[in-house]
Design a protein around this nucleic acid. Sequence first.
DNA 1: CTCATTAAGTCAAATAACTTGACTTAAATC
DNA 2: GATTTAAGTCAAGTTATTTGACTTAATGAG
Lengths: 399, 399
Amino acid sequence: MTDPRQIRAKSGTNHEGTSAHNRRVMIEALRVNGALSRADLARATRLTKQTASNIIEELERDGLVVPQETVRKGRGQPSTPYALVPSGAFAIGLQIDRYVTRAVAVDLVGTQLARAEADLPAGGPASGTEVLFDLIAGVRGELVRVAAESEKRLVGLGVAMPGPFGVEGADNDQWMMEAWQKFPLRETLAKRTGLNVGLQNDAAACATAERMVGAAHGLDNAVCLYLGYGIGAGLILNSELYSGANGNAGEIGMALLSAADPTRTALEHRASLASLYLHLGIDPAAPGIHDEIGRLAAKDDPRVLEWISHAARDLRWAVHLIETIFDPQTVIVCGGAPEALARQLLAAMEPLLPSIADRPGRSHPRLQLGMTDPWSVALGAAAERIGRAFDPRFSAIMK
Amino acid sequence: MTDPRQIRAKSGTNHEGTSAHNRRVMIEALRVNGALSRADLARATRLTKQTASNIIEELERDGLVVPQETVRKGRGQPSTPYALVPSGAFAIGLQIDRYVTRAVAVDLVGTQLARAEADLPAGGPASGTEVLFDLIAGVRGELVRVAAESEKRLVGLGVAMPGPFGVEGADNDQWMMEAWQKFPLRETLAKRTGLNVGLQNDAAACATAERMVGAAHGLDNAVCLYLGYGIGAGLILNSELYSGANGNAGEIGMALLSAADPTRTALEHRASLASLYLHLGIDPAAPGIHDEIGRLAAKDDPRVLEWISHAARDLRWAVHLIETIFDPQTVIVCGGAPEALARQLLAAMEPLLPSIADRPGRSHPRLQLGMTDPWSVALGAAAERIGRAFDPRFSAIMK
DNA sequence: CTCATTAAGTCAAATAACTTGACTTAAATC
DNA sequence: GATTTAAGTCAAGTTATTTGACTTAATGAG
């Protein structure tokens, strides 16, 4: 007998896999299109009326959908649309950034029900894990107060932090995240919270958030250019987040700016918020820094404008590269930058460089602004858990 | 009733979808692992012995697998491994390059059974389509002679040509391919040949070839850096070829080399075979040019070495970018360059730039040489049709 | 040399989930 | 008021996997 561990194969599926897929397809249809009748769902998913009806019945029993008012639209029996029940599921998202950590509780449709934020102590996991535990416990407690049933319907805890993962002497030593990146965070949190824990980088989380409630809602191919302390790209390819062989896909901040450049300057060193702080001589750990930057941008501070003009040039090129390599439906700028800054930066990036994206009859803009909300990363981390539990995915059909 | 055309949803699945998936999973397992017994297949796919057995029986009836000699390996009844039958399916691949067109017929395991090549007349589709028809008909006829059953088992015709598709005033006007890119090639060929026709760009086809019989065999995440007349990247992400929203993903040749560069030089203009021909002052349409370049490279022609040193620098950066953005298991250099040239170029690219791929415990090299065969694009075009018909894919389970 | 053990593979019945086609309900239109 | 149209249900039918017992054929221990 050949050693079974050496045989590489995808897993097969069975009736349960079929059923799981169909449930997920219907839930996603409701998420993307809003409330739909059983007949609409049957048509959209190409299942029979009967099957759609059975699944809706089951979803209603499970508390995931509710019937709405019947609607008359022309001849025939009026239809009864079903809508997702926001409180059908919950997830907690945790963002670990350089100087702060944020936790948020969201429901099935992405509404934020609880939030908490704390300073992240400088000593790495050794001193920081208790802060995380407390933050999570606080949000979890608040969630139970707001939604009594939530504990039963909590699908997991999503964690997002700057990458890259598993790389020796990473380029980002200076931000002191390496200790966190090497720490067995997932295992530790799973053990402590008893929850299903997922881990991804901040750009990926942001993309997930955009997909659930933002500019990428319903899109199959979109790239989110994440502008935070660092820079990254969240990749939604073929309707799924792509994270690479080691979870490090999209670490575009580490991309060197040119083939010829002997100084080996990475994009991140030129166009991230970190580079702005540096440019302005501001301590990145300073409290209220987000608002402060927003104010400076809003009043056209010359040094901010100076940074914008430089950063815009590099980001314009990053967008060109993303378009050339991914051929996405759209590129979305997102992340924790203050909105005033993000808007100015976006404006400064126009006109975009020519690329294959410059085609007639586009249905989405080449570049658009997504969420500019410091909470979007934590939101996305939570959304990933929701999506994993409910969205149609290839791996979900397998045994 | 909501307009069904406006409802966006994935399709559901049913027993047929389940069964199709399981068949595909088992075929892929045999392709990746070689011959396997029913029991092995059951374990690897996590299906029951009975199901695996039923499917193997069906595949044998369909002529896709055959039992091998039984093998005794320890206690218990000896097992009977089943192997894919090469003649279980066939496909024809067609490459349309700038100055030549090539057709190849392959079987289920990627063996080339017939080949033909012709000059591509300069006038675009107007004068070129007949050449294609003749070429295809010739290969098809040859295939029937070699494998009498092939017509019944011909799964389709794959076409590969340089991209990008659907772009106005594309950067590659100079190569005169624009007329081909705008021509309804798929429809025309489908009508004329009666076959199921697929179309992709040359880099994607090359990646598909590497996956079927080359360096990417069995890999889930690999990027093929295609070095042909132009340059492109073939992207295998999550076990599937990624082609973007408009089939133009991976057009890395059109990437500008730097954020700052005011001359807007694209990678393709520096590191493609076209750039080499230009550098050497050779007419790219000259017959025997492939061998000529190979000879020059083999005897260390100084002008070739000069080009190599420049191209290597730009390609080193391209690899860095690919690693940073995709986090693949490996990067494979492939395409129609003569092997001597490709080897020298690969050697000149070392040492690679630091990147997240520079991690301990890698199981695949960061960069490796794939096929250097002018026929690999046509082979890949055919392989894509085989893969579409037999490999497990998410879309294959849907109704 | 025989028997216990182990593993491959088959048989037949059970089960799960989608499909089919007829039927019911309710609204709009002529 | 009859007809048409569409939503939705009912009950039987179909497909494909699962289950558990059974058969076959080899190894190894006593």
